[in-house]
């Protein structure tokens, strides 16, 4: 079976993650959606690495994981800070960005 199917799988997972970010109001769930999108792109990278027979895709996926780990740490810290300040983690609550 052609490894290109994994790219299709990655596209589907990416769409699901994006929908989660758009539709869920719980910050942690939305954040997990972001993680899913990152992982989908990783899957695409690894699949292309297999298709082209070159290892650079895997290395890139590795870098994406590192960056994602850093992002998770900071993101969750922000969620906790926001929760401490307003006792909620709903994404609709902090509307200070309103122009």
């Amino acid at each position: 079976m052609d490894p290109i199917n994994f790219v299709i799988l990655a596209a589907i997972l990416f769409a699901i993650g994006a929908a989660a970010v758009l539709l869920r109001r719980n910050a942690i769930v939305a954040f997990m959606g972001v993680e899913l999108m990152l992982n989908a792109s990783n899957l695409a990278l690894v699949a292309f690495s297999r298709i082209h027979g070159e290892i650079d895709g895997q290395v890139m996926a590795f870098f994406v994981m590192v960056v994602a780990a850093a992002e998770v740490v900071v993101g969750l810290a922000i969620i906790i800070a926001v929760f401490r300040a307003r006792q909620t983690i709903s994404l609709d609550e902090p509307a200070e960005l309103k122009g």
């Binding site: 299709i8 769409a15 699901i16 994006a18 027979g53 070159e54 290892i55 895997q58």
Partner: peptide, 21 residues
């Protein structure tokens, strides 16, 4: 977005390397 990506991916054909790395 999902459908769009899938449609693009299915339209291309990339020859697969014989030996994976």
């Amino acid at each position: 977005l999902g459908a769009f990506l899938v449609s693009i991916v299915t339209r291309v054909s990339i020859p697969v390397a014989e030996e994976g790395v």
